[in-house]
């Protein structure tokens, strides 16, 4: 299981790097076959019509091709990098909102503390551990986590839809996040009972 997750993370990163470095169309087509159906699920759950979802997938995949050289697998896995593009496109499309972001090169930015104590795990291993930990989440936590990411809804709307008190939704999300965070820090929670 562990090796499979790691191999899949490496495979997707390599495809995106081939697009970035060699403008490799075959690698791009393979990425498309992997991500387009997943992006479609992601966008449909956010409430888009099928036609709008496919137009957005086009925009996301064209952006992947055009911006591939900014992908750095040490910072984020291919899936994370593509998720961020899809999330921003979804905001553009559904809300016509801007998404304010900090500028990493801003002189007023307080830089990361470079004490090296942060992460000793390789980014690829972290991502593989994260995939495992997501599969081992209790179903009621996984359900709310997917809603929080995939549906364009506030936590209060999620609470209403699931007929749960808002406090329960928030505490389950916090538990899920804490568990996944531990997994990314190299503390594998699979098999642990929470």
């Amino acid at each position: 299981m562990q090796a499979d997750d790691r191999a899949e993370v490496d495979r997707l990163n390599d495809l995106l790097l081939r697009v970035a470095r060699q403008r490799d169309r075959q690698a791009f087509v393979t990425l498309f076959h992997h991500f387009a159906p997943r992006l479609k699920s992601f966008l449909l759950r956010a409430g888009m019509e099928a036609g709008a979802a496919e137009e957005t997938i086009q925009d996301v995949m064209v952006t992947v091709w055009q911006r591939a050289e900014t992908f750095d697998p040490r910072l984020a896995a291919a899936g994370t990098w593509i998720f961020a593009i899809a999330r921003n496109r979804r905001i553009d499309r559904l809300r016509r909102d801007r998404r304010p972001t900090f500028d990493p090169n801003d002189p007023a930015l307080v830089p990361d503390e470079a004490d090296g104590s942060m992460d000793t795990m390789l980014a690829e291993e972290q991502t593989a551990a994260l995939h495992r930990a997501i599969r081992s989440l209790p179903p009621e936590q996984a359900d709310l986590l997917k809603m929080a990411y995939f549906e364009d809804k506030a936590h209060s709307a999620i609470a209403e839809e699931r007929r749960l008190p808002l406090g329960t939704v928030k505490s389950r999300l916090r538990l899920a996040l804490a568990r996944l965070r531990k997994a990314m820090a190299g503390d594998d929670p699979a098999g642990e009972t929470l």
Partner: peptide
């Protein structure tokens, strides 16, 4: 880290 979770859910 939260964006990485989004990426993992998307790749699922």
């Amino acid at each position: 880290g939260m964006e990485a979770i989004g990426g993992a859910l998307l790749s699922d």
